[in-house]
Write a protein that binds this DNA or RNA. Structure first.
Lengths: 205, 205
DNA sequence: CCTACCGATCGGTAGG
DNA sequence: CCTACCGATCGGTAGG
């Protein structure tokens, strides 16, 4: 991506590319989450950024590149948090608790990105697809490791991958129904769901 | 919907409307699940049915009607199964087990419809949307009732709606990762997931 | 059920 | 030669 600046046609002073990139990713994230990937046109994105569609093409190759940026930056951040937890202090059980609550918080606080993860990752192609898949694989492997360390051999008869996907799946499903402004405030939701997972489903017998 | 018949342009003998409807719903289900709702064109659907796009419009009002048919017939079937379980024999705990395993089986055996439920129900509008939402509400209410009967007051400190959404969410998430031809055969998956839910997460203390 | 089309919009690109 | 864009339009396809 190159850097954009003002709203007018003047050559305009160069702004930092990082700032521009932020704006593009934020706009794409909002629109893809709201209208869907196919439901968002290049014109929609350009309008959001106060550009013409032609100008948008000066910065990006197309919607696919924007989707890749959204997914890669979001997933990289998500993975970094889990790595901090894995490498941080605490016993295995505490790390699992933090990993679970981190995942819950991510789904609640970054709804738009998570919605795009879950719905449109399949639209990625070629090398962006492989790169994103690599980050996702690392996240899942790391989560499995944290899970296995915390569980020990307390659940020998159940497949560890099934457990991991089930835990992540129940948290991810928040995106479909949870309303932070609803009956259950975020901190209550987090603690109840966390207890349902850790003190019930994954309790050591 | 009217009824279609052969592949040629002859007025062709009237076949049962039911047979035609089946073919339309089957084609729409396959394509929407494979390519997405917006990713499926009217031309794609017509080709699948050996019709021209213009002819397709003779039978249906458009993609929205097909989506509504797919969702309503699928959801009605899904609800009927749960009603049979609720009204059938057995104690509350057995009914809950059947309800859970029924849901698992539905996700495994009717992947295409479930994928459309989860991804494209939001694209419905107006009265089809309300009708579908009504069926979904009834399913969720019935599931909550079965859940509450089975749990009694064994989990007084956790919100029953959170429990319901969590149970349904973890089962629904199978659509994202479970491969019936993979490492876990369907019957093993069903029994392990069922036990994870019933004997662990919802165990009576 | 087909042929012959439409208004509009799609993602993407031309020259300047 | 490069940057940062613009107005206008390209070839095709959407639903109807």
């Amino acid at each position: 991506m190159r850097s954009a600046s003002g709203k007018t046609g003047r050559p305009s002073s160069p702004t930092s590319g990082a700032e521009t990139e932020q704006a593009f990713i934020a706009a794409a994230t909002r629109l893809f989450a709201e209208r869907g990937f196919k439901g968002t046109s290049i014109a929609d994105l350009a309008r959001e950024l106060n550009l013409t569609t032609a100008s948008l093409y000066y910065y990006v190759d197309g919607k696919q590149e924007l989707l890749a940026r959204v997914l890669e930056t979001g997933m990289a951040d998500f993975l970094a948090r889990l790595q901090d937890i894995a490498e941080g202090m605490g016993d295995p059980r505490e790390k699992l608790e933090r990993a679970v609550e981190n995942h819950i918080d991510f789904v609640i606080n970054r709804r738009d990105v998570v919605r795009i993860f879950l719905r449109y990752r399949g639209m990625l192609q070629d090398s962006p697809r492989e790169h994103y898949q690599g980050l996702l694989d690392r996240y899942q492997l790391l989560f499995t490791t944290i899970l296995a360390d915390a569980l020990g051999d307390s659940m020998p008869d159940i497949d560890i991958v099934l457990v991991r996907q089930t835990v992540l799946g129940m948290i991810n499903s928040l995106i479909e129904w949870y309303d932070p402004a609803g009956r259950l405030p975020p901190d209550v939701l987090r603690s109840q769901l966390s207890r349902l997972i850790l003190e019930r489903m994954l309790r050591r017998d």
